[in-house]
Design a protein around this nucleic acid. Structure first.
Lengths: 136, 136
DNA sequence: ATTCTTCTTTAGAATAATTATAAAAAACTC
DNA sequence: GAGTTTTTTATAATTATTCTAAAGAAGAAT
């Protein structure tokens, strides 16, 4: 299946029609080997750079949120003025280089199993995220 | 030592003069048994409620940031439009009840040791934070 | 205590990320 | 192709946070 067909499938699954703009967003997001960490603003600029076509900021927001809701993108819990997303939606953790404001993946093996020994009645665990901040 | 004397000490250590406003902020922050998780806006409103005196938002921001810099407050990495702080500056982790937008402390024993097996040349680990999201 | 200097408070303006709006354009249905 | 629904877009609105500058309070020196 060509990557364009995959994009269309992802969009349809997310209840989005496959428009030119959204295909361009997909092209930047999913047409890559390695995991991709980004802010909306990063993505907005990369679309212009890579596809030569401008997509409005509102469309970028809407599309990213739809993908996030569907599970094609993961939001990374981090303190920053901007929200960070990750195309790697598997269960994994992150380094955050505070100085450079850059994220680096940590494989699950790099951290080992995390066993939460406390529970809250009526609540279940949705996710466990480890953030390792790095300094020089 | 009275709590007021402690507040003054904390303020001096943070390079802040002990003003009436800042003492009121300290009163809400540090005059309590349990750990306190808050946003700036929470704190701003609690000062009015508890002390009956209004402190300007700018002063709350400035004071909280000075305490954070000095290590009297800890910032909690979490995805939210607002920044969360914690008066418990010891090494510990958090539950986050997504629905209620509420944080709950996890003792270190509740999580167990976290052994990061990967390292980045030239960088050292500043902190390791575990965030466990809860759902119903 | 008085004067002088430095720091602080404050309201309001500025900034920046995000969300909402509504009219024009594109996609889909028949 | 005609009609309906969705989408895009520029722009406005919202919200958290930071900045600013003038008036007030704290600290130091006398």
């Amino acid at each position: 299946m060509s990557s364009k067909q995959e994009f269309i499938k992802k969009l349809r699954n997310s209840n989005l029609r496959p428009t030119k703009q959204r295909i361009n967003i997909c092209d930047v997001l999913f047409n890559r080997d390695k995991t991709f960490h980004f802010t909306i603003n990063d993505l907005f600029n990369l679309i212009k750079d890579k596809t030569g076509q401008k997509v409005s900021l509102a469309t970028v927001y809407n599309t990213v949120h739809a993908f996030h809701k569907k599970g094609y993108l993961k939001e990374i819990p981090i303190n920053s003025n901007q929200t960070y997303f990750d195309t790697n939606v598997s269960d994994h953790h992150h380094f955050f280089d505070v100085k450079e404001e850059k994220l680096i993946d940590l494989k699950n093996e790099d951290v080992g199993p995390i066993d939460i020994q406390k529970s809250i009645p009526g609540k279940k665990i949705k996710s466990v995220e480890v953030l390792v901040k790095l300094e020089d």
